[in-house]
């Protein structure tokens, strides 16, 4: 790597993950540049969620390396890991808001406890982020009173409030009713336009075409093919990707 090349925001090197006998990820290499949106597609069981969860070590990699802004995620102390996780925001398929805390408190908790921000600053930041996802007026609501789409937007605000360097989206719209998907995708599009570095695992192919800088196709625990959306969707090279795309478009039709 030459010195003039900018440091990738997220770098995955030779990542392996085994669950007992099953090899879920084999030798994954992926670099995500600052401000880039990388979209990951692939059949279920292809290892795409596992790869994402390895990036903030919710899943422990078997071997390999992960760097965020040049700093290692692996082989560091528990406390350093907690600090590194602040730089990696994550949005889950199941939202996982804290049901006992108000929307505002959901967004301020980690700011207060992990970032040690003063209460006033955390509140201000939370309201700013809630405004960004269009839910400032729900700040005092409880998660149970919100629709799925609203909950997911709060979850995005919760991650954003910590000023992460990169955001991971693990099938963020898969648990939503179709009519609520749009509001979440809109927030993601806004984020992208704001220059956020993002990795998105999702089945929203239309969104991938419009918003992704690069699409990565995974199957059987390896990256089979990657490229700009037009190439991946318009001119797939591998047989496996072609089969996958025809299956997906068949389902959509």
């Amino acid at each position: 790597m030459s010195a003039s090349q900018p440091l990738p925001t997220l770098e995955i090197t030779a990542l392996e993950k085994r669950f007992g006998e099953t090899q879920v990820l084999r030798s994954i290499d992926l670099k995500v540049a600052n401000g880039e949106l990388v979209f990951v597609i692939g059949p279920s069981g292809s290892g795409k969620s596992t790869m994402l969860r390895c990036c903030n070590r919710l899943e422990e990699p078997t071997s390999g390396a992960i760097h965020v802004n040049g700093k290692p995620m692996l082989g560091i102390t528990r406390r350093d890991l907690d600090r590194m996780r602040l730089q990696v925001g994550m949005v889950f398929q199941g939202f996982f808001l804290y049901p006992h805390l108000s929307v505002l408190k959901n967004v301020t908790l980690a700011q207060r406890k992990a970032l040690k921000r003063p209460a006033a600053e955390a509140d201000a930041r939370a309201l700013e982020m809630l405004d960004k996802v269009g839910l400032k007026h729900k700040a005092n609501a409880m998660p149970g009173e919100l629709s799925g789409g609203q909950q997911q937007r709060v979850a995005i605000a919760r991650a954003l409030a910590l000023d992460p360097k990169v955001m991971l989206f693990d099938e963020p719209t898969s648990a939503l009713d179709p009519e609520l998907v749009g509001s979440v995708l809109k927030v993601m599009r806004d984020l992208r336009e704001g220059g956020m570095t993002m990795i998105v695992v999702s089945h929203e192919m239309q969104f991938a075409r419009e918003a992704a800088d690069r699409v990565v196709f995974m199957d059987g625990g390896v990256i089979v093919e990657q490229g700009i959306p037009d190439e991946i969707f318009g001119n797939p090279k591998s047989e496996r990707l072609r089969a996958f795309l025809s299956r997906v478009s068949g389902e959509a039709a």
Binding site: N56, L58, R78, R79, D82, R83, R85, L86, V88, G89, M90, F92, G94, F95, F96, L97, Y98, L109, A110, K113, A114, L115, A155, R158, A159, L162
Partner: peptide, 17 residues
């Protein structure tokens, strides 16, 4: 749900927190 633990960990909270 495991997600409650994971959501906390992903936002940089320690196990104790």
């Amino acid at each position: 749900p495991r997600g409650q633990w994971e959501a906390g960990a992903a936002t940089g909270l320690s196990f104790n927190q």
